[in-house]
């Protein structure tokens, strides 16, 4: 069976800077994949290419075997590819509830009135129920991150791209997030998760990839990858901060 999401030999450069140098990646249905790498390794660029916000210079993006390289982000979202941004992008002039309703109605292609229950339930699951009618522009960073996740989930994704959703969270909050993500996985959603908080990642994923200089330099069982000498050399300085 074809992988659910595949990047096939993706290349991208900004001027002289190569941010993706022939990257290939395959995410199987039900799998959770982690990506780590130092700042500037090209992690977020890779997500932008997968989600359609950025066109690659070369290579293809495949979703459930279909070439989606030329599709717009909204088409990809409706196919079931959702992205939670590293810097939360709330609709600041709308309420928290409306933020989730938009994503639920358009991302999942359902009539507005049919998604109210699901939106309310998602707010509950993401710990935002008591802030449903607040303006999203007034949320704290933590709540913005929660909203980012709730909105991505509202689109009924088959694949969820998570970009550093755990950054800046306390230990307790991070634990709650990991539980939520495990829960999302259990409901059949496949996940690619970029994260600096390695212990949160290790608790949630099947496979770990290390991105450096626009290519994957290591891949495999998460704990083994973390212990490998290559990773120690390039990455441990940052992992120790996490």
């Amino acid at each position: 069976m074809a992988p659910l999401l595949a990047l096939d030999n993706i290349s991208k450069r900004f001027g002289a800077v190569v941010v993706a140098d022939g990257i290939s990646l395959a995410l199987n249905a039900g799998e959770a994949l982690g990506i780590i790498g130092p700042n500037g390794a090209g992690k977020t660029t890779l997500f932008a290419i997968a989600a359609g916000a950025l066109a690659p210079d070369a290579g293809r993006v495949l979703f459930a075997g279909e070439d989606i390289t030329g599709l717009s982000p909204d088409r990809r979202c409706r196919k079931g590819l959702a992205r939670a941004f590293q810097i939360p992008q709330p609709f600041v002039g709308m309420t928290v509830f409306e933020n989730v309703v938009v994503a639920a109605a358009f991302g999942a292609g359902e009539p507005e009135a049919a998604v109210y229950d699901r939106a309310a339930d998602l707010l509950d699951r993401c710990g935002l129920a008591d802030k449903a009618n607040r303006s999203a522009g007034g949320l704290t960073l933590l709540d913005r991150k929660r909203l980012e996740l709730a909105r991505a989930l509202a689109t009924k994704p088959r694949v969820l791209l998570l970009d550093e959703v755990a950054g800046g969270l306390t230990e307790h909050e991070c634990h709650a997030l990991v539980e939520l993500i495990k829960d999302v996985r259990a409901s059949g959603v496949s996940i690619v998760w970029i994260e600096h908080i390695v212990h949160a990642l290790l608790a949630s994923i099947d496979r770990l990839l290390v991105l450096h200089g626009g290519r994957f330099i290591a891949a495999g069982e998460p704990r083994e990858v973390i212990r490998s000498s290559q990773v120690a050399e390039i990455y441990m300085g940052i992992a120790a901060d996490g």
Binding site: D74, F91, G93, V102, A154
Partner: peptide
């Protein structure tokens, strides 16, 4: 609802499945 989302954040609106164009 979609238009208000576009007003606030075009990038996020597109990522939420709205055909902005």
């Amino acid at each position: 609802l979609a238009l208000t989302a576009v007003r606030d954040n075009e990038l996020a609106a597109q990522s939420s499945g709205i055909d902005v164009r």
